[in-house]
């Protein structure tokens, strides 16, 4: 599918004016550069000791790169529309903290890992395909989905972080209510921070 899409894009580029193609390439290059910077930050964070140091490194990148509001909206769906501004702000803040704390917890020790960009989709500005390669040669595919230059979903070997979040959060809201969701998020943040 991606291959066919790529062939289609190349065909369109060859048959029509070059300007849109050039713009797309430029956007594709900038999104790939942004993801590469994020990966460099994760590698640097893995070499830090202490969750605070890792969080300090990662927090700025998450703030710049991730569309936390988009993630928040999708995660709770229709519930979002009935939330007060304060509730929305609190939810977004907790979500941002959870994303940072989760990255800091999972990328907690450097053992020769590296990130590689997949050649497939280099011209796209809405998808960046990468791989996390471990020192034993095994790897995990990490696909970043972007909207307006910001990441709203990360798919690891076919499992979408946003889809999991959506299923998880909506289930809690439906069964226990929105305030319970906020309470669960606070618990998970504390759990991730105590991981050292």
């Amino acid at each position: 599918m991606v291959h066919r899409l790529k062939v289609f894009i190349v065909g369109v580029a060859c048959c029509s004016a070059l300007t849109p193609w050039s713009d797309a390439s430029a956007d594709g290059a900038s999104t790939h550069a942004a993801i590469a910077t994020f990966h460099a930050t994760l590698i640097a964070a893995m070499q830090q000791t202490g969750v605070d140091a890792r969080e300090n490194l990662i927090a700025g990148q998450v703030q710049r790169l991730f569309d936390v509001e988009g993630i928040a909206r999708i995660s709770v769906g229709r519930t979002w529309r009935g939330l007060s501004v304060d509730d929305r702000d609190r939810f977004k803040r907790l979500l941002r903290e959870l994303i940072v704390a989760t990255y800091a917890d999972r990328f907690d020790r450097f053992a020769g890992q590296s990130f590689e960009m997949e050649a497939d989709g280099l011209d796209r500005d809405d998808l960046v395909r990468t791989r996390l390669v471990k020192v034993d040669g095994s790897s995990v595919g990490l696909d970043y989905y972007l909207r307006d230059g910001r990441v709203f979903n990360v798919v690891a070997d076919g499992v979408s972080d946003l889809s999991l979040r959506r299923a998880d959060y909506r289930s809690i809201v439906k069964r226990q209510g929105f305030n319970a969701l906020l309470g669960h998020l606070e618990t998970k943040i504390a759990l991730a921070r105590s991981g050292d």
Partner: peptide, 12 residues
């Protein structure tokens, strides 16, 4: 570490 509702998380 991540799931608030482990059943829904596992299913998805």
């Amino acid at each position: 570490a991540s799931a608030l509702d482990p059943y829904a998380f596992t299913r998805d």
